[in-house]
Design a protein around this nucleic acid. Structure first.
Lengths: 162, 162
DNA sequence: ATAACAAATGTTATTCTATAACATAACATC
DNA sequence: GATGTTATGTTATAGAATAACATTTGTTAT
C-alpha cells in the first residue's frame, strides 16, 4: 500500500510563496509553468514530507485529471530542471526546494521516523567536496548528500524502532 | 536490456584479497559467509564497475544456480550489514567496500561515462556533517555522499554526452 | 486566419528495482 | 534424533521509471 499523502486541505503559506516564486522564476526564464506543472509543485509543497511520484499521481487523479506515470515524471523533470524541487535518491521521493533559482544540489537531513526533511546548505562541505574532486581532476555534474537519521522531535518520543 | 556485467574471467587480486578479508571478518564476528554470499561478493568484486542486483542474479544463473530476486537481495543485505559492500543509492548498484570492518558510510565519486567509482574517505567532511547534525540534535543513522560526474580518464576522451 | 512547426500532454506497454509471504533445506544445540 | 534457528527456494506482487507513439496545445510566420 502506498503511503498516505499527508496533505493539508489548502495550500499553506509556504506553498503559496513557493508557487509565487516559481511563477516569477519561470517567467524570467521563459520557461512554461503550465497548469499541470504548477499543480504538481503545489502538491509537493502541500505535503509535510517528500512525496513519491506515484503518490503525486494519485493526487492528480483525485483532482479528476487523467494521468499516467509519464505525466507526473515529465512534470517532475521540468521542476527539477528549473531547480524548483529536489529528488532524494535514497528514498525515491521529491521535495520542494527552499532556495530556488540557485540550482544548488543541497544537503538533506531525513528523519526515518516522521519523514520530514531539512535542507542544509553548508558551503564548507561543498568547498571540501570540490577540493577533493579538483584534486582528482574529476568533473562534478551532481552532488548527493543525504543524512538519514532521527530528528530532535522524534528523539523525544519513546523509540519506535529498536 | 540490462548492462553487461563486465566481469573478468577469473577473480582479480583485489577480489581475492577482499574475499580473504571477508572470511576473516565474518569468522571473527561469528557471521556465516555462506557459499551464496561469498559468491555474490566475488561477483561484485570481479566487476570493474558497480553492479545492479539483477545483473548479479544473471551471473548466479549463469553459474547454474537456481535463484530469484530475493536470493540476491538477501545476500546483498547480509553483505551490507557486515560492511563488506556499499550501495550507491543514486544508481541502485552495489560495489565492494575497500575498507571493510569499519562500517563507514563512504563518499563516492561516480563516473557517468565509464561507471567506475572511487571511494573517498575525507574525515573532515564527516566531521562537518557531524557538527551540522549535532548542532540540530539530529541522530545520524546513515550518510550518503555521492558525486556524479566524469573521471579524469573520460575527460581526456572526446565528449560523448554534450 | 491558417499552415507549419514546436512543445506539452495523453496513452499503452514494458523494463527495472525491491519486497511480501510462505515452503523447504541446512545447521546447530541439546 | 528432536527441536529451534538460520538460510535458501519459490511464487507472486508492489513500486519506480522510461520507451514509443498519438494527440493536443501553443507559437510563429506567412
Amino acid at each position: 500500500m502506498r503511503q498516505a499523502a499527508d496533505l493539508s486541505c489548502s495550500p499553506s503559506i509556504d506553498a503559496q510563496q513557493a508557487l509565487a516564486r516559481a511563477e516569477t522564476l519561470c517567467q524570467q526564464r521563459g520557461a512554461r509553468l503550465t497548469d499541470l506543472r504548477r499543480r504538481v509543485l503545489e502538491i509537493i509543497w502541500s505535503s509535510a514530507t517528500p512525496l513519491g511520484a506515484y503518490t503525486i499521481l494519485d493526487v492528480l487523479r483525485d483532482d479528476g485529471r487523467q494521468g499516467a506515470p509519464p505525466t507526473v515524471y515529465r512534470a517532475l523533470d521540468f521542476l527539477l530542471a528549473q531547480g524548483l524541487i529536489h529528488r532524494l535518491a535514497s528514498l525515491n521521493v521529491f521535495t520542494g526546494c527552499r532556495r530556488p533559482g540557485s540550482h544548488h544540489s543541497g544537503q538533506f537531513l531525513i528523519c526515518r521516523d516522521c519523514g520530514r526533511v531539512s535542507e542544509l546548505s553548508n558551503p564548507v562541505i561543498d568547498e571540501l567536496l570540490r577540493a577533493e574532486t579538483d584534486a582528482r581532476g574529476f568533473e562534478v555534474l551532481a552532488r548527493i548528500v543525504e543524512i538519514l537519521g532521527r530528528c530532535p522531535d522524534c528523539l523525544k518520543e519513546p523509540t519506535r524502532h529498536g
